[in-house]
Each structure stands twice: as structure tokens, then as C-alpha cells.
Design a binder for these strands. Structure first.
Lengths: 234, 234
DNA sequence: AATTGTCAATTTGTCGACAATCGGCACCGC
DNA sequence: GCGGTGCCGATTGTCGACAAATTGACAATT
């Protein structure tokens, strides 16, 4: 009845802020996260920062080295391959379940989301289009009505966002992004499982190949240029 | 050269111990985890306990209510359905990948594991058979050579163990457990994807239906008997 | 008798402090 | 010049303490 008094505790607040900083690229991979610095930044003591950092570690956003501290995780091309590969398994399974459980309102929501993608393509706002793109796929997963699955997908999504932000943009034509979602919803409405799974797999594989290829190039460049990547928090 | 000086930090140690206590049923669902009590139990201060508990929360083993503390999560029948449903998606995807990537040594490992299951069936040690059963499926997932997938599977497995422990035993005939793994490896060796996926899906679905049905009964009993479940840490 | 209000005991949230440890730098012997 | 060694500042690991909040019981009121 009444909405929760949103006294989101300090730890949640801090972990969200750090997450945001990582996925938007403000904190670059490899950056050391010193507890003292973070605690000063947030105006708290070190205890909540430590707890928040540990949370982020379990989500794979930062790595923790005992007695050395926390570092923003550097994703490799192999990591990205694994992440997208896992996403394919997860999202196709979700879609398959959604086929039997999705309601009319949810289908309508997916269609509205596609229109939103078209509008953002016209507006030329690439960053928010990426955001809404993720929202579409999350809605699809949520239509599986399997909360545990959605939770895993959310974690995966933050990792993907972290990877994509490093690249900048994924597609040349923003309208194509919106378009490529149409066949998915079309198959879903038809109730055609085979078509749905194929459309989804194609859609995700395209993204996977683009991201992985770019990461391979980045890694190659990094090793070519002898100086390591210039990762430092600004 | 030298094995790691296993100074696994306190937090990891504590979280492992609590996890073990939960999955073995020593800590029953709904039990409140007071920081002071735990810290006394482990002979530490509250700080490491808090961090460990937050870790467990992100894995879904305990729930956290701000200003109220940590509680051992009570799994519902719906939770178990979701968990096993997700497992099906995850493990079938892993098997599909394994088909293309598994090496001879890994196949041999799976076969040895089945033999171990037979031996444990003869020895009549049900608990360790469950443990080795999980090990088999973990090996199968690991054969996907997708570390991210294995990580998610591990988290899922601890939740499943927590659920199964509450039940006691899952099958009547321990030899059947070992047997039902044979067709999976057989299909894997033949390279027959369709057969592999069907065998796996059947195998997991059997477990899912058994667990979910038992949880439905438990929940029904709990509501029938007006007194709530007697959850207290011994 | 049921509900509300009050209070004490317990527990969480956060903090600052101290010891242990790590990384880097100068120093030393070769 | 170079590799090893010992020191020093910085950072983490852990702790005990205090304020704020919650719980449960008991008394007061309708």
C-alpha cells in the first residue's frame, strides 16, 4: 500500500554510485580504489565503503586483492565473449519461457519500448538509446516471470554496459538498432518459438561479434604500443 | 612453485563457514543472524562478519533488512521452481558449448565421476553422493570453458543444496542417481546435440519436479498447522 | 479485552584508532 | 653498473566505542 520509506542505506548508495562511475567510464579499468579516498569522496568512514566494494566484487565489477585493495576490473575480449555467450543462453531461455507466460500488457510494453528506440534514434542521443536498448532486453527477460533469471541478467547487463562504454558506440545507424528489435517481438506475438530464438540469437550475436572484435583490436593496440594503457582516475 | 600461503582473509573464511552452515541445514531458514553472536562465535569483531554477511546476501543465501539485520533466506516452492528452471537454461547451454569444446581429459573426468557415484551408492553414503552429484554437473558446466557461466552455476548450486538439505533425500534408489548420468555422457561422446539436450533436460526436470513438489507439501503443512515453522538456531 | 503509549534492553550503523603489511626508494656490496 | 637489502610512507585488516533505531514487554486508557 504505502511505498517503502526509501532509506536506502549508505552501503547501497555508495555501491550504486561506484557502479554508475564504472559503467559510464568515469572510473577506468585498472584504477585502484583506495578506501580512504572513496570515503573522503562520499563523506563517510571506510567501513561502508569496504562493504560496498565487496558487493561490487561479487558482481564482478571490481576485483579484490587481499592486502592490496580493490581495482576496477579490466574486461578482456575473452571476458566479453563469455559474457555475451552466457547472455545468449540466458536470454533465449527467458524468451522461450516468456512465450508461454507473457501477458498482453508486457507485449505492449515491448512495442512501446521499440518506439522509444526510434524516437531516440531521431533525437540522436546515442547514450540514452543504449540505455533503453538494455531496458528492452530486460523487459523481455522479465516476461519469463522468473525473478532469479532476471537477477542474473541484471548483473550481466552491468558488465556489458561497462564493456560497451569503453567502446563508445556500437552501431553506425541508430535506426538499425530500433529495427533489429522488431522481428523479436513479431515472432513473440506469432508464438513462433523457432523464429523467436533465431531472431534473438542473431540479434545478440551481432552485438557480441562487434564488441569482441573491438576488444581484440584494443588489446592488440595496447600490446603494440609498449606503454601500458594510461589508466588513472581523473 | 610454492603453494599459496593460504591466508584466506577472515571475510572469506567466515562467509564460507556460514554458507556451509546454511547448506547443511545447521542454520535453518528464517534464523536471524545477529552480528554480535556471530562475531563471538568466530572470535572476531563485527566488521568482518558484516562484510561476509553482505556477500552471502548478494548470493541470495541470506536476506538483509536495513536496521533489522540478516536472516537466513527461506526458499519457497516458487523460488525452487525458478532456480531449477534457470539451471535448465544454464546447464543445457553449457552442454551445448561443451559439445564443441570439451577435451578428452574432461570426458574421462565425467566418466570417473559417474563411477564414483556408483561406489558411493554401494557405500550407502547419501550425503556425499549428493555432493558428488553436484560435482558432476559442475564439471559438465566447466567443459563449456566459459568461466562466467560456471560462476553463475556455482551460486545456483549452493542455493539448490540449501533447498535439498531441507528435504533430506531426493531419490529412493541411490543406484538410479548414478545411472541417470550415463545417457548424458553417452550423448556427449557421440556428439549428438539433440540427444544430449534431451537427456539433460529430462535429468534436471526429474529433480526439479521432486524438489518443487516436496516444497509445495512443506508449505501446505506449514499453513495447515497454524503455528509457524519452529525456526531457531540450535 | 483490545489497543495504544512508554520504556528498557538489544542490535544495527558508523566512526576513529591502531597494528600488520605492502610498494617504492635509497643505500650498499659486488 | 647492477642486483639485493633494509627502511619509510601509505594502505589495508581489524577492533572497540558510541549514537540511533528496533524489539518486546508492561502499563495505561478507552
Amino acid at each position: 500500500m504505502f511505498s517503502e520509506i526509501s532509506t536506502t542505506d549508505l552501503v547501497t548508495q555508495i555501491s550504486r554510485q561506484i557502479t554508475e562511475a564504472i559503467v559510464t567510464g568515469r572510473l577506468k579499468p585498472g584504477t585502484r580504489l583506495t578506501e580512504l579516498q572513496l570515503s573522503r569522496e562520499f563523506g563517510t568512514s571506510r567501513a561502508p565503503v569496504r562493504e560496498a566494494a565487496r558487493l561490487l566484487e561479487s558482481q564482478g565489477l571490481v576485483v579484490f586483492s587481499p592486502r592490496r585493495g580493490f581495482f576496477v576490473r579490466t574486461l578482456t575480449a575473452v571476458d566479453l565473449r563469455d559474457i555475451y555467450e552466457l547472455r545468449i543462453g540466458l536470454e533465449l531461455h527467458a524468451a522461450s519461457l516468456a512465450l508461454e507466460r507473457i501477458g498482453q500488457a508486457e507485449v505492449a510494453g515491448l512495442e512501446r519500448q521499440i518506439e522509444k528506440l526510434y524516437r531516440l534514434a531521431d533525437a540522436g542521443s546515442a547514450e540514452s538509446q543504449i540505455f533503453e536498448d538494455f531496458a528492452f532486453h530486460r523487459m523481455l527477460c522479465a516476461a519469463s516471470h522468473n525473478t532469479r533469471l532476471v537477477k542474473v541478467y541484471d548483473e550481466l547487463a552491468t558488465e556489458m554496459r561497462a564493456g560497451i562504454t569503453l567502446i563508445g558506440k556500437l552501431y553506425d545507424d541508430p535506426h538499425r538498432i530500433a529495427e533489429t528489435h522488431e522481428p523479436i517481438v513479431a515472432a513473440l506475438k506469432k508464438g513462433d518459438r523457432k523464429e523467436l530464438l533465431e531472431a534473438l540469437r542473431d540479434h545478440i550475436t551481432v552485438a557480441q561479434e562487434a564488441v569482441v572484435a573491438l576488444f581484440h583490436r584494443i588489446e592488440k593496440d595496447d600490446t603494440d604500443a609498449q606503454n601500458g594503457p594510461v589508466w588513472h582516475c581523473g
